[in-house]
């Protein structure tokens, strides 16, 4: 049995094998399907969530290791989908297919939580773990900087 906090709520997992990666607990057991499966080896970033505020890949993270920890998913990033990044993403019409964008947003949100004045180079480095096959990188950069400006 594991007890942790997900999107501000206490969650008790008593029927999940502790080695199950957080990603599949979110998707299969808790029906929080905003977090995506991309590579299963923490290389593409599609499954990014916040673990105690830090951007973390959930696809290789055993849920049994998370007792007492706090997880935020896209469903908990903002109450109405109005995080400055989410607004900036809409304003710049960032997504193409959209599949990687939740992970991109979670990585960007963790970056801006620490630094509301990142240089372009810092954004590019911070987002390097999130692959976008459609090639939305220029718009991601622009949207992160727009949101950073709003947060400053």
């Amino acid at each position: 049995m594991v007890e942790l906090t997900i999107n501000g709520r206490e969650v008790v997992l008593d029927r999940v094998a502790p080695e199950t990666p957080l990603l599949w607990v979110l998707r299969d057991h808790l029906e929080l399907r905003g977090t995506k499966f991309g590579c299963g080896m923490a290389q593409c970033g599609a499954c990014t969530v916040h673990l105690d505020g830090r951007a973390t890949r959930s696809c290789m993270l055993p849920v049994g290791s998370l007792a007492g920890r706090s997880v935020t998913t896209i469903e908990g990033l903002s109450s109405k989908g109005d995080h400055p990044l989410q607004k900036a993403w809409v304003e710049h019409d960032v997504p193409q297919c959209g599949y990687c964008q939740v992970g991109q947003l979670m990585s960007a949100a963790a970056l801006l939580a620490e630094n509301t004045s990142p240089t372009d180079s810092e954004v590019r480095t911070a987002m390097a773990g999130n692959i976008c096959r459609c090639g939305t990188y220029p718009r991601i950069l622009a949207a992160v900087q727009s949101a950073a400006e709003e947060l400053r």
Partner: peptide, 19 residues
């Protein structure tokens, strides 16, 4: 016009194949 699915995509509510 704004892309129809963008708002759902950024909220994580857009439905892809496994969703």
């Amino acid at each position: 016009v704004p892309s129809y699915d963008t708002a759902d995509i950024v909220r994580g509510t857009a439905r892809f194949g496994l969703d």
